[in-house]
């Protein structure tokens, strides 16, 4: 049994929150640069230039990429041969608290969804703990802004519905809400499982590097088809028109029930932010 102190988790979460908020994911930055090369409209190119420049000065000046420093989502993949000494949940929370204080990040969380009083700490995060084989701990931190979270949707399809209906569903969301969600976006889609499983997969899907496709051939095909469809909408970077409405589409699937076909779409803006490490 490997022993890991809760203090190590606290420090890790703190560092990942800071990194995610200040340093744009390398794959996202590369995708933005590739998009700029493809654009022909001067305004779209200027928007992409500003977005790329923003990422560079955020890192240099230690300023958050976006003022919406998000609700923190932490994925802990804890190896079953690891013994954590101390309070794991408290350690994660303390890590978030430290990062948001020291990093001068915005505190955007209200304690009760209806009464809505700011906790002034950005606590609590959403924590998913999963037990996996081995003696390591995988920690992934997503900082999720709500401009794009609000544009996310889910739908329970009929099991007999054709794939084209799923494509239309995604395109309709982007058509209606795309300009509010800071395009060019990264689209995470979860298909299968139960309602909650599909939603959770859709968020995890955005952790996959932009440009990488699914290992299943039919899913990779669907990702490609949806991406093509979205970029034909010509919403463009920040809605000014152009070829780049989405940077990529990432789909994760799970077996499902004979009576159902749950589909969830989690939209992530051009400031798709997360960081991860294995301890």
């Amino acid at each position: 049994m490997r022993r890991v102190g809760a203090g190590v988790i606290q420090k890790t979460v703190r560092e990942l929150c800071i990194k995610a908020n200040l340093e744009l994911r390398g794959d996202v930055l590369s995708a933005l640069r590739r998009a700029k090369k493809k654009e022909t409209s001067a305004r779209a190119i200027r928007m992409l230039d500003i977005i790329i420049y923003n990422a560079l000065i955020a890192k240099k000046k230690r300023l958050p990429i976006c003022q919406d420093t998000g609700m923190v989502v932490v994925y802990l993949d804890v190896g079953q041969d690891v013994l954590i000494k101390g309070d794991l949940k408290k350690a994660v929370e303390k890590g978030v608290l430290d990062a948001y204080r020291e990093g001068y990040f915005r505190k955007s969380i209200v304690s009760d969804p209806l009464i809505r009083r700011n906790t002034d700490t950005n606590l609590p995060p959403v924590i998913y703990t999963r037990i996996v084989p081995g003696r390591k701990i995988g920690v992934s931190v997503v900082v999720k802004g709500f401009g794009c979270e609000n544009a996310s949707r889910t739908k329970m399809f009929r099991p007999t519905d054709p794939m084209s209906l799923i494509q239309d569903f995604v395109a309709d969301i982007i058509k209606e809400l795309g300009s509010k969600a800071c395009p060019p976006m990264y689209i995470g889609i979860g298909i299968g499982g139960t309602l909650d499983k599909a939603v959770s997969l859709s968020k995890e899907a955005t952790l996959r590097p932009v440009g990488e496709s699914s290992k299943s051939r039919h899913i990779a095909r669907l990702e490609k088809d949806i991406l093509k469809k979205l970029n034909k909408l010509r919403i463009g970077p920040m809605g000014v028109g152009g070829k780049t409405t989405a940077l990529g589409v990432s789909i994760l699937t799970y077996p499902t029930h004979i009576a159902g076909l749950p589909v969830a779409v989690n939209i992530s803006c051009h400031a798709t932010r997360d960081a991860r490490i294995t301890i």
């Binding site: 500003i50 923003n54 000065i57 000046k61 800071c182 920040m238 803006c269």
Partner: peptide, 13 residues
């Protein structure tokens, strides 16, 4: 007016 979403560091200048 609209301005550039997600470019908060740039706009702070």
């Amino acid at each position: 007016f609209t301005t550039i979403g997600g470019a908060g560091a740039y706009l702070s200048e």
